[in-house]
Design a protein around this nucleic acid. Structure first.
Lengths: 101, 101
DNA sequence: CATACATATCGAAAATTGTCAATATGGTTT
DNA sequence: AAACCATATTGACAATTTTCGATATGTATG
């Protein structure tokens, strides 16, 4: 599965914002509903909703709807995939000599 | 070594931009000087310089000056640290039950 | 030392992203 | 169905980021 550069940026955009990093911290001890996250965050409900969309799009977070509540949790598959992408992208395949003499 | 949320965002900002992802691809087969990177990229010299600064600040890339040339390479320590941060931040410490009944 | 070259910095414009108030949507309860 | 609640979406504005031309800095070379 080859990801485009664009797709890779989508993954790591999840971690480019302080608020979203904080959301990860909140999700570390298990699934939480949006209302609990909102309580803990210093932002409005629409802003939280926006961040959760970015997190879900990145694949690092899963969303699950139950009645009128929305539950979010860290995705094991997503995070493993992200680690692999990071590894792959920063792997040095010792070969090329460079450059300007 | 505890990183703040802000410091974490600095690391992953490196991978939030398509051009910078492309730069990682170029650095995968070893150290390259700025002029070679510039040849391969579709941007001007000041723009490349800006991206290289962000990459170096993230710790994922090392810069080395030699005469009037600047050589860049992927940092083994930096990338390992980034993987650890990603792992740590997305680790679920099974405990909390949630939430709204 | 004057010129040429590689890269960095500055300042401004364009593009993207984060934020919120207002409102819509979809589910639940009386 | 009407009122209510949780979350999503919209539209506008603020903040940040990307980009580039112009210029500065530092190094090598004639």
């Amino acid at each position: 599965m080859e990801l485009t550069n664009k797709q890779i940026t989508v993954i790591f955009k999840a971690l480019c914002d302080e608020n979203r990093v904080q959301i990860f911290r909140l999700l570390q001890n298990g699934e939480k509903c949006a209302c609990k996250l909102l309580e803990a965050m210093q932002c409005t409900q629409p802003t939280l909703s926006h961040h959760m969309k970015i997190l879900c799009d990145s694949g690092l977070v899963n969303g699950r709807k139950e009645g009128k509540w929305m539950y979010y949790s860290i995705s094991a598959e997503g995070t493993e995939a992200a680690v692999n992408v990071l590894r792959e992208l920063t792997k040095v395949s010792e070969s090329g000599e460079c450059c300007c003499t």
